[in-house]
Computed example of a mutant assay.
Amino acid sequence: MILQKLSIIIPAYNEGNTIHLILDKIKLVSLTNNIDKEVIIVNDCSKDNTEQAIIAYQQANPDFNIQYFKHEINKGKGAALHTGISKATGEYLIIQDADLEYDPEEYNDLLKPVINGFADVVYGSRFMGSNPHRILFFWHTIGNRWLTFASNMFSNLNLTDMETCYKLFDTKVIQGISLTEKRFGFEPEITQKISRIPKIRIYEVGISYYGRTYEEGKKIGWKDGVRAIYCILKYGLFKAK
């Protein structure tokens, strides 16, 4: 399959210290077959210098295709993704966190099943492959695996990492899905809804993971895990639209 453009969706909340670093990494990535990159940043009403950092980066890199949008009130990561997805013009899009936990150099690994004509959706799994993974929280790992198991029960998929940030979608497919979860419930919602699309081809590839501690800026907590369970039941068991 020949792709012309990849849209990279970055939801950002209080990432003024790292947003320029992740943009540097994205800028340096050479995509397979010279695919163009379109970076869409959605600032979810950050309280720090995120906006100033993004604008300064745009001004210093005028040839780098960065589109900037912002929410006037904080709505959550899912809501920022909704905005970014609606603005995407590439044939495929990938979700990229604004921190440094995920490595843009692995975009080509995610693209490979698509370019070879096998996949419509590709998840990057932190729990498979031989790439480096930072050792952090035992109970987070158990929680992620349990949520993936529960999601698989209702989606009838055999994913190893439903909660991963790195998800690559056919843009027209995801833009055609009604998404409602405004916070971290985005992950189980999109997984359940994608799984119900007839003949959808979902692949998974191993990725590296450079996780952050809460002191370093990690935001997800136990309440988000509870919400994820609710979303798995809502969109999986009860097939909510």
Rank of each mutant, 00 (worst) to 15 (best):
F154D: 06
G124K: 06
G84E: 09
K167S: 09
E163I: 13
I94T: 12
G84K: 08
L147G: 00
F137A: 10
K112M: 11
E105D: 13
G76W: 03
A88N: 05
A119W: 04
I115S: 02
T164G: 10
T89I: 14
A79L: 01
I85F: 12
K112D: 12
V114I: 15
I85A: 11
H82W: 06
G78P: 06
L147S: 05
K112F: 06
R126K: 11
T171N: 02
I94G: 03
D120H: 02
F137T: 11
F118K: 14
K172L: 07
T141S: 10
A80G: 15
Y166P: 15
D103I: 04
M128E: 13
L157N: 07
T141M: 08
F138C: 00
T83Y: 12
E105K: 15
F127K: 03
M153L: 15
R145E: 07
E91Y: 10
M162K: 01
E163P: 14
L136N: 07
T160K: 13
D120K: 02
T83H: 11
T148S: 08
D99C: 09
N158C: 02
M153W: 09
N108G: 01
M128P: 00
V173I: 15
G176D: 06
A119I: 04
A79K: 06
K112N: 12
L110W: 06
D99N: 15
I85R: 12
D97L: 03
Y92G: 05
F154W: 12
P132V: 03
F118M: 10
G124E: 01
G90N: 07
D161V: 06
E163R: 10
D120F: 00
L147R: 08
T89Q: 15
L110F: 07
A119M: 03
S86K: 14
K77F: 06
K172F: 00
I95E: 00
N116W: 00
L168K: 08
Y107N: 11
T141F: 01
D170K: 15
S86W: 02
K77P: 00
R126H: 14
G124H: 04
L157Q: 10
I174C: 07
Q175H: 06
N156C: 07
F149N: 04
D120I: 04
D161S: 13
A98N: 02
M153A: 09
P113N: 09
D161I: 04
P113H: 08
V122M: 03
I174Q: 08
A88T: 05
T171R: 02
G84V: 08
D161Y: 14
L168C: 10
D120E: 02
L110V: 04
Y107H: 13
D99K: 12
V121P: 02
L111E: 09
G143C: 05
W139N: 13
E91N: 10
L93D: 03
L159T: 03
L147W: 00
G78C: 05
Y166K: 11
L157T: 12
E91W: 11
V173Y: 02
G78I: 05
C165H: 07
V121W: 08
F149T: 12
T89V: 13
L136Y: 07
N152K: 06
K87R: 09
D161Q: 03
T148E: 09
Q175E: 07
